[in-house]
Computed example of a mutant assay.
Amino acid sequence: MKIVDVCAFYSPQGGGVRTYVEQKMRIGPMLGHEIVILAPGDEDAVIERRPGARIVTIKSPRFPLDRKYGYFAEAERLYAALDAEAPDFVEATSPWRSAGLVANWPGAAPRSLVMHADPLSAYAYRWLGNIFSRRTIDRQFSIFWEHLRRHSRKFDHVVCANRDLSRRLDEGGVRHTVTIPMGVEAGCFSPALRDRSLRARLLADCGLPESAALLLAVGRLAPEKRWPMVIDAVGLASQQSPIGLVMLGEGREQRTILRHIAGNPHVRLFAPERDRAAFARIMASADALVHGCEAETFCMTAAEARASGLPVVVPDAGGAADHASGGAGRTYAAADCNAAAAAILEVVRERPRPAVQARSMDEHFRELFAAYALCREGGRRAA
């Protein structure tokens, strides 16, 4: 099949969507498919080409709130690109404007909406959850729910990477939901990469001896990640057991987070490690991964931790929670600092090294593309 991904969230500067796109461009051709990524950009161009895969940008304006990204402002330009590509299957990988554009494209190809974002959890529930019930919040955001319900009738699949999101969308009347979990890069992460000397150096960076516990936190420095809560939870747990926290990330909240660390020598913020092999060694050398975001659609860092034999401490909502199953870590009540601290202490005191049960991205794309192939063979089910 020729699969065209209308990818509004793609940015060459990085992020989870870029990692997903890179894996799709590697694995898709191996499975016999041609992959084309259509992304907003500063000009009409092919910005990357590989055997059987390419990234094509459509000249588009920058997104005002985060100029690292663009957005598809003109339906006609996007439709002309889709018509020229003549895809066998089309994906929309943002639930915002591009979902409506792809849903309404007059082409005959079947199509899916891949939920790379959970806006209600990331924003509405986080902002208003301490005041109103989720049912009340959903009523107040009925325009977004109707947007999803209306467009889902024109998609053959609404693909979610975690069961919690699939359930909420299905209960909200979104049609054609299906859960297809993602996975980790095959052959990259392993408990065998654990390096005690590296662990000792990271603890020394935190001003602690090797007898202390080393926690790792990885991700964008954005409000929905709740890094201040994570820092506070580690601080509470540290009152009972020595713990160092190494954070790897960058983003618009960096100054806020540095102020929150407030010179605590046991918490260090470093830039992301771009070298995948080096990052895999860091992951395997920690004692646990701690995460604060209940709005993850999958939580790749928790999956990578699990593949590295690392226990995870994650919220009990969203995609991160799935990675603590089967004894692979602890969940805590989302957004609850005291509960997070208690879960951290449990993991630190036990220091479990969970058995590796990691799904790979190869498995994800095999399952995803098989669903697409069945759709093409059986005919569109979108209304």
Results as ranks from 00 to 15, higher is better:
1 M>Y: 10
13 Q>P: 06
18 R>D: 05
18 R>K: 15
20 Y>G: 02
32 G>S: 05
32 G>Y: 07
38 L>D: 06
57 T>F: 09
58 I>W: 03
66 D>Y: 05
74 E>P: 09
81 A>W: 04
84 A>M: 08
89 F>P: 09
92 A>M: 07
93 T>D: 15
96 W>H: 15
96 W>S: 10
96 W>N: 13
98 S>P: 04
113 L>D: 01
116 H>G: 01
120 L>S: 09
123 Y>E: 12
130 N>L: 08
136 T>C: 11
156 D>E: 05
157 H>Q: 01
158 V>K: 01
164 D>F: 14
166 S>I: 02
168 R>C: 08
169 L>Y: 12
173 G>V: 13
181 P>A: 04
182 M>V: 03
191 P>N: 10
193 L>K: 09
199 R>D: 04
201 R>C: 06
210 E>F: 06
218 V>G: 10
221 L>G: 13
222 A>K: 05
231 I>W: 09
241 S>I: 12
246 V>F: 11
254 Q>R: 15
258 L>F: 04
282 I>A: 01
282 I>P: 04
290 V>F: 11
303 A>Y: 00
311 P>W: 01
312 V>Y: 02
313 V>C: 15
325 S>V: 08
333 A>Y: 01
337 C>L: 13
349 R>Y: 07
357 Q>A: 14
364 H>I: 00
369 F>K: 07
381 R>S: 08
